[in-house]
Amino acid sequence: MLDKPKIHNPAQSSAPLTLYGTEVRSRLLLGTARYPSPDILRQAIAASGAQIVTVSLRRESARARSGQKFWDMIKGLGCHILPNTAGCFTVKEAITTAEMAREVFETSWIKLEVIANEDTLQPDLLGLVQAARTLTENGFDVFPYTTEDLSVAEKLAEAGCKVIMPWGSPIGSGKGLNNNFGLRTLRSYFPDFPLIIDAGIGAPSHAAEAMEMGYDAILLNTAIAKAGDPARMAAAFSEATRAGRTAYEAGLMEQRDMASPSTPLAGTAFSALNDS
């Protein structure tokens, strides 16, 4: 009897991702906000396979102690915790929030957001660089939420950031990759630097597109939390992210402006001999 051929699953052979010395297999990072219930959040995280989840700090009522309940639930997931500075509009607020997050979550990781505008939630790029520099000097591992601007990315790298997280499009918009050219340029300019698309991803196809482009990972929240069935959508994003990464590693064909027949022309019936 012949041995069964071994089935090679390329999706499982993708290289791990290393972020500030921590190695993860999953290239999907998940936000924990806006889910219909804690149970559905738990199910979605499990279905996504995410190993890194983002959290925040908010004012606590001594009576409700909501923070303790949330923390107990998140701890039980066994994921790496990436606290954010969401809602901070100044460098000072972001730095103080980061310091509070380091103590509460017992991690030096911080997803740094310094927001410039309430409507677009666009990052304040000048404030971001300033805050990133201060936090890095104070021992933080900074994950800056930025745009695809190349010069800002350079400044963030100079400030000591070892990961850069450009937006796809504005937070919660679900519009996907708003500036394809800019994102490709950024990827080309930083070939060996961990780059994570953070924000604006609305559909699994957006995630796959970014991963095919060579981005290292995807960070998203609303597209899963606000799906009709968040756990199933989390599974879909997980598959899309893996598919995109595998395609990138496999090497996409080059696009052409004109057609190129896939079926060989040689030997085509009815063709003149000297055509073949």
Partner: peptide, 10 residues
């Protein structure tokens, strides 16, 4: 005075 605690975040 600000007193904060863990919460859901994106």
């Amino acid at each position: 005075v600000e007193i904060v605690a863990p919460r859901q975040g994106g």
